[in-house]
Every structure is written in C-alpha cells, then in structure tokens.
Amino acid sequence: MSARIQLANLVPTAVKAMMGLESYLGGTDIPFILKELIKLRASMINGCAYCIEMHAEAAMAEQESPQRLLALAAWRESPLFDERERAVLALTDEVTRLDEQGLSEETYQRALGLLGETLLAQCLMQIVTINAWNRIAVATRMEHGHS
C-alpha cells in the first residue's frame, strides 16, 4: 500500500483535540478491559487493522484472554461475555453501524438499565472516539508500529 498523509504532521491541533478526548476517557469510570472491548469491537466492524493490533496488545497486557478477544467477532454467540459486556457490545455495534438501524430503543434501554446514565454517556463517548480513530487510521492507511 502506498503511503498517505500523516495527520499529526499536517493538522496537529486536530490530533491534539482527539488526544483531549482520550485524556477525558482515561479518567472515566469505564473499566479498562471494557474500554478495550469497545475499541476492539468497533475496530473489527470498521476493518481497522491498526486499532485492532493496538488494542489487542493493550488488552492482553492486562491479562485479557486471547480466547475472549477472538470471540469478539461473534460475541452474540459466545458465552464468554457477561450481561453488562453484552449490553455494551450491542451498543457498540449499533452506534458503529448507524446506517443499519441507528441505536435501537431496546439496546439503549438495556444499556441504561445496566450502566446508569453516567456510565452509558461515557461508553457512548468511548464508542464515538474509537470510531473517529478508526476512520483516521483507515483513511490514512496507518500501520501499527508506524506513524
């Protein structure tokens, strides 16, 4: 694949703004592994190899099992995720695939009931942010371990 522009060099203020979102998300109540599940699932849907590699490494560094990470591809059929994780993964799928149906009332209400308003809002921001990063990485053909 041919090299493409590097946003960090051309629009550093925009990348700094994205890093501000990351800084905010680092201070939320979302457990680390749940954040990584969100990031990995959205990245799988969006076909972002850069983000999949990055977040799989981060999750495994925190002792997440490779079995669960692989099962994310078919999480609905997998018994490896608890009720809260399943609600967040459904939220991630629907917000990432807005063109299909948007966020259904059923998925929203289930997540709200399991997470409460604040954690739901934080998870939504995590989903939105990883989707933005996926689009940046795919559009610029970023490769893990490279800028």
Rank of each mutant, 00 (worst) to 15 (best):
Q126G: 12
V138W: 05
N134F: 06
T28L: 10
L72Y: 02
T140Y: 04
L10S: 10
A139F: 05
L91Q: 04
L72N: 05
G20Y: 07
V88G: 01
A121D: 10
A87M: 13
V138K: 12
H144T: 03
A42N: 02
D29M: 08
L69S: 08
L103Y: 11
G20H: 12
Y24V: 11
E22W: 02
L114C: 13
P31N: 13
L21N: 12
E53K: 14
A56T: 15
Q67D: 11
Q63N: 15
L40Y: 01
R97S: 09
E117D: 13
T13C: 07
A139Y: 05
Q109W: 00
H55N: 08
H146D: 10
R135H: 09
K16P: 01
Y108I: 04
A49Y: 01
L21G: 01
E64T: 12
Q67K: 15
E62K: 15
A137K: 09
L37C: 05
L7H: 05
A139L: 13
L69F: 07
M125K: 01
Y108P: 02
P12Y: 11
G20K: 14
V95P: 01
R41Y: 06
G27I: 01
M142K: 13
M1K: 10
M54G: 04
Q122L: 03
G145S: 08
K39M: 08
I136V: 14
A137F: 11
S23F: 00
T92K: 05
Q109L: 10
I136E: 00
A49K: 11
E85M: 08
Q109M: 08
L34G: 01
A71F: 08
S104W: 09
H144M: 04
E117L: 06
E117C: 02
E64G: 06
L34D: 05
P31R: 12
S65V: 11
E105H: 14
M125S: 09
L91C: 04
K16V: 02
L34F: 00
S43Q: 07
Q6V: 15
A132K: 04
L114R: 15
G27C: 02
G116W: 07
N46F: 04
K16N: 12
A59D: 02
T107D: 05
I127E: 06
L91P: 03
H146M: 11
M60P: 00
C123N: 11
P66H: 01
Q126L: 08
H146Q: 15
I45T: 03
Q122W: 04
